[in-house]
Nucleic acid binder design. Sequence first.
DNA 1: GTGAAAGCGCTAACAA
DNA 2: TTGTTAGCGCTTTCAC
Lengths: 344, 344
Amino acid sequence: MTPITIYDIAREADVSVSTVSRVLNDTAPVRASTRQKVLSIIEKHQFQPNALARSLIKKETGTIAIILPDITNPFFPEVFSGAENEARGLGYTFFLCNTGGDHDRESEYLSILREKRVDGIIFLGGRVNLQNCPEDMAQELNDIAERLPIVLVNGNLPKSRIHRVYTDEAAGAVLAVKHLLDLGHREIAFVGGLQKMSTTMLKVKAVQKTLKEHGLEIPKDRLLLGSFSIDDGKRLMSELLEQDNRPTAVMCVNDYTAIGAIKATIEHGLSIPKDVSIVGYDDTPLATAVIPELTTVSQNTYQLGKLAVDILHELILQKKPRRNTTLQPELIVRQSTGPAPAKI
Amino acid sequence: MTPITIYDIAREADVSVSTVSRVLNDTAPVRASTRQKVLSIIEKHQFQPNALARSLIKKETGTIAIILPDITNPFFPEVFSGAENEARGLGYTFFLCNTGGDHDRESEYLSILREKRVDGIIFLGGRVNLQNCPEDMAQELNDIAERLPIVLVNGNLPKSRIHRVYTDEAAGAVLAVKHLLDLGHREIAFVGGLQKMSTTMLKVKAVQKTLKEHGLEIPKDRLLLGSFSIDDGKRLMSELLEQDNRPTAVMCVNDYTAIGAIKATIEHGLSIPKDVSIVGYDDTPLATAVIPELTTVSQNTYQLGKLAVDILHELILQKKPRRNTTLQPELIVRQSTGPAPAKI
DNA sequence: GTGAAAGCGCTAACAA
DNA sequence: TTGTTAGCGCTTTCAC
């Protein structure tokens, strides 16, 4: 099929393989006429050097990988997009490893990626986002990080020295609550997110803390956790709205649940933001797709991916990039939040 | 860093490299005690065989690639998801190549993937979706397909023998128009999509043909093409609504533009579906995220990805899968379509 | 400026 | 059941 090698080229050009290699890699001077001859034969056969053989020697593959939980959740394509774009510019190709949040699958991929000798790994979500990552899973990652550059995006690992790029998720949550407080809201609920994920609890705690500073709190029946899906947002919001004393504002763990919350609210015949204000998180493209457009917290998702690659690249180059890179979140006020309704 | 090889293992276990290789690959019987010894040493050193060296010999990498235009467009993650899930089961890892619809980038990736010796390629969108794919671009793909398994998803290439998996997009459009006709609509418009893409024109033509069979047509000023974005859907729909004689139903090239159309409609103070019916295409997760929920055509996106991998896998195994695999689209009726309003 | 030859880490005959 | 050895296709000294 593709039996044509550098030897075939060499023979036909009547030079040695090293010469062919030299024109291929521009690694030493070659006489112009020789180079031309070689080049034309390469062209003629559409010869493509075997990257496997080259990588075997050079100990670099020009390949990096990203491990993430769910590419169909619009947050991740955005990160990927930023990462891929940067990586391509730096000469890398990307493995995309979708784990479905399954930790075994994470381990599987980790193992495969080591065998395939990727130059580095970007790890998102999953075990890295757990409130309490089990010792062995953390260990596995730490071990690998000893041998292979790894960058965690928006995650953390207990007592680990792995490099990280992340937004200050708590600060983003604070921004959102303050916005609601400024609008006069006092009855605030929190909706969505798995309790075991730090993405969820980081926000919950930040909200609680901020409210406390204002002499307020989230009562238990207004703290409704679940998953990150539209459906759960809808379901939980319904519960909230059916309570005797419904909140005037709801902070959601992400845009997906916020959209579910919007749907539930409207189905209950209420108006946004007149009756209820809703704020999301992530500023995915969905945020401007819904009516009313969603007030949400931007994490600079694209930038997150880009920076992760930059750090990874420096790591690969054996430079010493800073261990932590943080991005400031930003509140994007749109139409789903407004002044608190007058007291009933 | 990772200087440990099969030789180190062999030496320490006091066996030959071939024995180690045998226990690694289970390629020939090895005495149980020997196997145990080798295994324990492998374990001890966390040894991972170098897949590059192996691939170099076996001429297979266990890697496939997907080339697609835009992973942030929710249609593609869905395809990818179906593909990845199937591929993982078959032992493949996935390169994701995002081209932004840029044909040069497609070529670049094609070249890199050949060098990296991927086992096969799935190609989506871009040149494969052009109404008129330039000869040279088609040629490039055909050439590669001679040497490397390729499957096109929802695309086509003039006089090419490349394998394809696709939904009958025209049939889907017909389903949608008939639905509108059944609801009594006679004033139907088409919105969105690049004219140069076959995804667009396939639908346009199908709609025109169906209307013609009913003595109807889409007048020029009701055929507004553009891009595939939410913004363009919104912009074009606005144009439509500002015409003297606005249509009662709009068929959109995809869900993204349909959502834009919904936004424009509501901003114009009209009600959906009472005043205007809107239908999308693709049945992305967005379709149920908006209010009203979108009537749309499902392409079985996930299945599309899965099947593409199945066909690719057979090709890799040198089997002879059928050249064309089609999937029937399905109309999903939700809330954005309803009876045509009484004549004005 | 160019060639010969020794690997990179593994698999796969071929012997034993 | 196990070991020896010749590659896979390339890069890289080291000579010339």
